[in-house]
Nucleic acid binder design. Structure first.
Lengths: 134, 134
DNA sequence: GTAAATAGGACTCATAAGGTCGGAGTTACA
DNA sequence: TGTAACTCCGACCTTATGAGTCCTATTTAC
């Protein structure tokens, strides 16, 4: 199945929500969770990952929350996916984990055509910025 | 994670292998399994699905096997994926299972941009025919 | 000090993927 | 006509991954 994980979906919704705020205005995880009916704990984890990757900045303590760390035009969807998944995406394992990860790599006859599709998808996610989906 | 399943990978490798044979020459599942070091039983399942979908024809009994049922130019990669997965692929659940399958569909803010990526991927798989990967 | 927020590890549960097994049906050929 | 060599088909098991929960620590405004 070729499908984005819930974490990525939640992350995209969340960071888009944060991006709609004016700079300096913080957004709490609870606010986002309530707004979109997303499980709070799961969302919190996703936000932590985005924060650690430097896409958003977190502020702890009372009246804390999250703000966007970069200009929306500088944040691509693939950066968001990469931050959440930890790895770059690939439609076949050998494309992300290297040739050794696939038992049939040497005799595989489809990696060449599939890598074209892969590049196609990567382009789509690379060229789509946060600014475009706000 | 956005990734093709092993079943789809095996199916693509197998049907490509079958397509390299001249018409009328049958290929057994065992031959393919040996050739690419693919688990035989799993491959057999995949071939059955391709057969039921009419992409290949099966011939039972001794000296039986599989042959291509259509012209390679008439078989797209998305047809192969559809035959094996049973459903069309979609990077989000709501795109394959309908709006009701997603709890946040109504308030979801990313379905519009994602559907563009979806269309992009679909095009890539639709336009890639078996003839091109042989 | 306390309330409100993030940080993060540990855990359970559900689902899907990968793989296995056994038996039934079909056909060529001795 | 019997048997070997095949495919067909459904049920099953195992493992990996994703989704979601729980609990505690840490930080900070008031």
């Amino acid at each position: 199945m070729v499908r984005l994980s819930k974490r990525v979906e939640y992350g995209l919704i969340a960071i888009r929500h944060i991006a709609t705020r004016t700079r300096g205005d913080v957004v709490t995880a609870k606010e986002i969770a309530d707004c979109y009916r997303i499980p709070y704990e799961l969302l919190a984890k996703v936000l932590q990952k985005l924060s650690r990757s430097g896409l958003i900045t977190s502020q702890q303590g009372m009246r804390g929350g999250y703000t966007l760390a970069k200009n929306p035009t500088e944040v691509s969807v693939s950066m968001i996916i990469g931050a959440i998944e930890g790895t770059n995406m690939g439609i076949a394992r050998c494309m992300t984990d290297g040739p050794d990860s696939c038992e049939v790599f040497k005799v595989c006859t489809i990696k060449s055509p599939l890598s074209k599709v892969q590049a196609n998808i990567e382009d789509a996610f690379n060229n789509m910025t946060l600014a475009q989906i706000v």
